[in-house]
Deep mutational scan, measured.
Amino acid sequence: NKFNKELQWATWEILNLPNLNEEQVKAFIDSLRDDPSQSANLLAEAKKLNDAQA
């Protein structure tokens, strides 16, 4: 389904953001699992944090 694909994509993207530490990655992945419908928003937040920590 749509959420499953978005969840998989967001998870992959977050795992590959180079500037997030392990705790941050875990927190984003946990949030994705808690509410897959928020995957686009969570991915945007993760990318923003990744850029800020570059």
Rank of each mutant, 00 (worst) to 15 (best):
E6T: 04
A40D: 08
D35A: 10
P36A: 05
A44G: 06
Q53G: 08
P36M: 10
E23M: 11
Q38W: 05
K48V: 09
A27N: 07
L17K: 01
A27D: 09
A44H: 12
L20Y: 00
N21M: 12
L42W: 08
F28Q: 00
W9R: 12
L42G: 01
E6W: 12
F28E: 00
E22H: 12
F28K: 01
W9E: 15
L17I: 01
N16K: 05
S31W: 05
E22G: 10
E45V: 11
A44M: 11
L7H: 06
L17R: 00
T11S: 07
A40H: 09
T11W: 08
D35E: 08
V25P: 00
A27P: 03
W12F: 14
N19L: 05
E13A: 10
L15H: 11
S31I: 08
Q24T: 05
D34A: 14
A52V: 11
L32Q: 01
L42T: 10
K2R: 06
N41D: 09
L32W: 02
Q8K: 10
P36H: 05
N50T: 01
V25H: 08
N50Y: 01
R33M: 14
P18N: 10
N41K: 11
E13L: 07
D51M: 13
E23H: 12
L20W: 00
Q53H: 06
A52W: 11
V25T: 12
N4H: 11
W12T: 15
N1D: 15
N4T: 03
D51T: 08
K47T: 11
Q38A: 04
E22P: 10
S37M: 09
L43P: 00
K47G: 06
S37I: 04
Q24W: 02
N1Y: 00
E45T: 09
E45Y: 07
E23W: 14
W9D: 09
N1L: 03
K26R: 06
D35V: 05
L43W: 05
A52N: 12
R33N: 14
D30W: 07
A44V: 12
N4S: 03
L43V: 15
W12M: 15
N21G: 11
L43I: 09
D30K: 11
N41A: 05
E22N: 11
N4Q: 05
K2Y: 05
D34T: 11
L20H: 00
N16Y: 05
A44N: 12
N41R: 04
W12E: 15
S37W: 05
A10Q: 02
N4V: 04
E13H: 10
Q38Y: 06
N50V: 01
Q8T: 05
D35H: 07
A52M: 13
E22D: 13
Q53E: 06
I29A: 03
L32M: 14
S37T: 04
E22R: 12
W12K: 09
A44P: 02
A46I: 02
P36F: 11
Q53W: 03
A46F: 02
E6F: 12
E23A: 13
A54K: 04
S37F: 10
L42N: 02
F28P: 00
Q24N: 03
E22T: 11
R33V: 07
A52F: 09
A40M: 14
Q24S: 03
P36S: 05
L17N: 01
S39N: 06
A10I: 10
A46T: 01
N1H: 04
N21S: 02
W9P: 02
S31A: 10
R33Y: 15
L7W: 08
I14W: 01
D34K: 15
A44F: 13
R33A: 11
N4I: 05
D34W: 10
K48L: 05
E6K: 03
K48Q: 12
K26L: 13
Q38R: 12
L42H: 05
N16A: 10
D35Y: 06
V25G: 04
A54V: 10
L43N: 01
E45R: 07
K47A: 03
N41E: 14
K26G: 06
W12P: 02
L20S: 00
S39H: 15
N1V: 02
L15G: 10
N50S: 12
K5Y: 14
L7I: 09
I14Q: 01
K26A: 12
A40N: 09
Q24M: 04
S39L: 15
A46W: 02
N16M: 10
N50M: 01
W9I: 12
D35N: 14
D34P: 02
D34S: 14
E23Q: 11
A10D: 03
N50R: 01
E6G: 02
E45G: 05
E13T: 10
Q8Y: 07
K48W: 12
N19T: 06
S37E: 08
Q53L: 13
P36Y: 04
P18M: 08
W12Y: 11
V25A: 13
K47I: 13
A44R: 08
N1K: 01
V25E: 02
I14T: 01
W12H: 15
A27T: 10
N21E: 06
I14D: 02
F3L: 08
D30S: 15
A44Q: 11
F3T: 05
A52D: 11
E6Q: 04
K5D: 15
L32N: 00
L20K: 00
A46L: 02
T11V: 06
R33P: 01
I14K: 01
E13F: 07
Q53I: 13
L20N: 00
W9T: 08
I29P: 00
N21Q: 07
E45M: 09
K26Y: 10
L7K: 03
K26P: 01
A54G: 10
Q24H: 03
Q38G: 08
P18D: 07
A10P: 02
Q8V: 09
L49W: 05
L42V: 15
S31V: 09
A46G: 01
D35L: 06
N50I: 01
W12L: 07
L17V: 00
V25Q: 12
S39G: 07
N1M: 02
E6S: 01
P36W: 07
D51Q: 11
K47V: 13
N19G: 06
L43E: 02
A27E: 12
I14S: 01
I29Y: 03
A40E: 10
T11M: 13
D30V: 10
N21A: 13
P36R: 03
N16R: 08
E45F: 07
P36Q: 04
L32A: 06
D34Q: 11
E13S: 08
K5L: 05
K26D: 04
W12R: 06
Q24P: 00
E13V: 11
N1P: 02
L42D: 01
A54P: 07
Q38S: 13
L42M: 09
E6V: 05
K2H: 15
Q53K: 03
E45S: 07
K5M: 06
Q8G: 04
E23F: 12
S37P: 04
A44I: 12
T11R: 07
P18H: 11
F28W: 03
K2G: 15
A27K: 14
D34V: 13
Q38I: 11
I14Y: 02
N1F: 01
K26S: 07
D34G: 14
N21R: 13
P18I: 10
K47F: 12
D34N: 14
F3W: 08
L42Y: 08
W9Q: 13
P36N: 03
L15N: 07
E45A: 08
S31K: 14
L15Y: 11
A54L: 11
I14H: 01
N41I: 09
W12A: 15
